[in-house]
Design a protein around this nucleic acid. Sequence first.
DNA 1: GTTTAACGCACGGACATTCGTTTGCTTGCT
DNA 2: AGCAAGCAAACGAATGTCCGTGCGTTAAAC
Lengths: 204, 204
Amino acid sequence: MVATAERGTAQAIREEAAKLFFERGYDATSLRQVASAVGLMVGSLYNHIDSKEHLLLQIMGGIIDDLLDSARKAAMVDGDAIDRLEAVLAAHLTFHAERAQEVFIGNAELRSLSDGARHVVIEKRHEYELFLQGLVEDAGRAGLADVIDAKIHVYSFVAQATHIASWFKPGGRMSLDEIVAIYTKLALRELNVPDADARVDQRR
Amino acid sequence: MVATAERGTAQAIREEAAKLFFERGYDATSLRQVASAVGLMVGSLYNHIDSKEHLLLQIMGGIIDDLLDSARKAAMVDGDAIDRLEAVLAAHLTFHAERAQEVFIGNAELRSLSDGARHVVIEKRHEYELFLQGLVEDAGRAGLADVIDAKIHVYSFVAQATHIASWFKPGGRMSLDEIVAIYTKLALRELNVPDADARVDQRR
DNA sequence: GTTTAACGCACGGACATTCGTTTGCTTGCT
DNA sequence: AGCAAGCAAACGAATGTCCGTGCGTTAAAC
């Protein structure tokens, strides 16, 4: 209970570590660098973390659950299957841009996880993809989209968002809203949704 | 020495290292693991390589040049701007699938390169993107495609292919040709090219 | 055709560093 | 007095790299 505007040392460690893992990679980042970024000596970190891998796990931890939550929440919108897909895609893209660092780490450092933890993450990721796939199939069944292969469309959406997470920085050439709008159009276009652009523009 | 199917020790080292870098990452792969995969002791590697980083550089080295070459060659096809784009996209996708391991390493291990080497790679990558961007803009100017933002379309194509490189394995659910065809359709669809699917099917 | 010298290449041990982690000890707040 | 949290120092293990040695093959010298 310090009187200063402390965000908590543990939180600071997680944030600085995330920054470094993002820039250099997990293996290439030493705990001494993390400690230095926080303004501590190495040993002191262990007053706040269990181990380096557990620190990575903490960082990657909530991401997928949060992503699934945000998608499920977005899917509760009123309208037809395309409206639902549109809303979920907007949430999907926004999430990947806003939490780009964590998303990137979550993708790039899967290999650095121990087997058990990795499979948990992969399983959740699969669950997320199945959720998106369901929305695509719904739109296809409703005759609102021309689905070539639902899985590939989902891969496409995932690829786009993942890629965004690797380059997006606030204050760039485009605002987040513009980016989301464009990529949503691309998604509807690739599903041959009639008047894809107009649909997206109309919602803004 | 019996004349076995020699591939050259240096080449074997590069191949085994690429496999390991792909699976575990550059930093997480020790030269002792590489040596063991080749059937050597660590020190013996240094009869064939300069350093670990130089080994990575060798592996990543040719990739982008090869990619650019393959794209330039594909662009020399007869036809309109869409035909050209289509041919280049097919080459683009095929390349990323066939050389998935190297492509993946080239993307994931950029961070592991020293500053000088990294900037060379980034520069070449930019050159490649500009080449694709030119094709997209050509198609737009010719009135054959409805271009939202040329750079974003290129990002989209890059994202898709990069993602393919992370999951494609020969002998999967779909043949390489099918995959290329589908993703080419997606690309033309997202450019609002009329009769996108028919155009692609017709070419096969 | 034999000897000799050279060379390529693998071995295994050693090296300085760096890593993650642990351990006491100290400090300052309550 | 108690306790969370910092520090310095040290640990063993692992890493990239180098070096002295020995072996098998090749090629020139006799």
